[in-house]
Amino acid sequence: MKNLRIKSARAAKDMSQEALAQAVGVSRQTINAIEKGDYNPTIKLCLAICRALDKTLDDLFWEE
């Protein structure tokens, strides 16, 4: 399932996939795979993404 919340949070901070990838220490393709729902990140990477985007885990990853 696509994760549009990361994409919109990234866009709100005016960050490219490349910039977010560099901020959290992964490849751009990994961020792309997470946004497309092709890869489930570990909790460590989820937390790094949340910190980079100033969001909580619930904001970006919790599904109702």
Binding site: G25, S27, T30
Partner: peptide, 11 residues
């Protein structure tokens, strides 16, 4: 320089 593979790449 901390060059390496990320978790998805290792997988």
């Amino acid at each position: 320089c901390k060059e390496g593979f990320d978790e998805r790449q290792l997988f």
